[in-house]
Design a protein around this nucleic acid. Structure first.
Length: 291
DNA sequence: CACTTGACCTGTCCGC
DNA sequence: TGCGGACAGGTCAAGT
């Protein structure tokens, strides 16, 4: 589920919704979703105020004035949704269906705030996690320690992409793009969309991709990610933003989940194949495999 | 060592 | 309707 554009959208939403909020209570039902002890939560979560919220790859970091941070990874089906106590959504309101019914059976963690409001961490498949740890330790957790560069930073040039891909010279390009240590934030949707943009077959070995194609791929990754952030991300099944709203990028997608439909460039029927163990969407005419 | 495959979970959809 | 199996946006550990 949430890839870079979705997590970025959640981040932007939470920055407004949680600004200066003070935590009053936390509850959780599934230890793997929130593996923290009572001592830490009592001393560094309860009564702490939200300072800043950042994103690194697909991880979200909520910094508190207690010197601790909440690090969240939504994995496939995670949601971070804020609900104000006084808000009441009527029938037909876009938020009514989800936010009005929270908590529900997928709710793993509830964080309540002093004046008003609650933050719900929902996660149907229970792959996601939220961890409370000292802010200075955040960069040292395994996931963030090994993660690659942010693809939307100005420092992320095509040469950087080329260098990063050299770490996996014999991998299929799709597997390399999904590897968070190569670059941060690209998942299955945006890998497919970017490879279509650059007209590269996802099973092409990294070694066999020309510099010219790397440049095209670099540009396609940035274009696709920026467009998706503009559209509030992609909602395929579960994803919603911090207000419970769906993202609309998939209306603009070129190949992802469009098998059987026409390639927007050439009209050839898009097919779905399996690459690197993942469902993969391509235009079979434009994305030819070069061995 | 580089790379690929299963495991972690729940829910939905599709064929019989 | 019911049941089994495949599949779903991610990341590790364990396998080759």
């Amino acid at each position: 589920m949430p890839e870079l554009p979705e997590v970025e959208t959640v981040k932007i939403g939470l920055r407004h919704l949680l600004a200066d909020k003070v935590i009053s209570e936390v509850s959780f039902d599934w230890p793997k979703s929130f593996p923290n002890d009572k001592f830490s939560t009592d001393n560094f979560l309860i009564s702490a105020k939200v300072l800043t919220i950042e994103r690194r790859g697909k991880a979200l970091i909520i910094n508190l004035d207690s010197g601790y941070s909440l690090v969240v990874h939504l994995k496939m089906t995670g949601q971070l949704v804020y609900k104000d106590d006084h808000e009441r959504f009527g029938a037909g309101h876009p938020n009514e269906s989800l936010v009005g019914k929270l908590p529900d059976k997928s709710t793993r963690v509830v964080i309540s705030f002093k004046d008003s409001g609650q933050l719900f961490f929902n996660d149907q498949r229970k792959f996601g996690w939220m961890r409370l740890l000292p802010t200075v330790e955040v960069p040292n957790i395994d996931f963030l320690k090994k993660i690659g560069p942010e693809p939307l930073e100005v420092s992320f040039t095509w040469q950087v992409l080329k260098d990063r891909l050299k770490r996996r010279p014999n991998s299929l390009i799709k597997a390399a793009l999904l590897d968070q240590t190569v670059l941060a934030g690209v998942g299955n949707i945006y890998a497919d969309e970017s490879l279509w943009g650059a007209k590269i077959h996802p099973s092409t070995r990294v070694n066999n991709i020309s510099t010219q194609k790397i440049k095209l791929l670099h540009s396609a990754i940035q274009t696709v990610l920026m467009l998706s952030i503009e559209k509030g991300g992609s909602t395929d099944r579960n994803y919603v933003d911090a207000e419970g709203k769906k993202g609309s990028y998939l209306k603009f997608a070129n190949v992802f989940r469009r098998e059987g439909l026409a390639c927007p460039r050439c009209g050839t029927t898009i097919i779905k194949i399996r690459v690197a163990g993942r469902g993969t969407h391509i235009c079979p005419k434009e994305q030819r495999l070069i061995k």
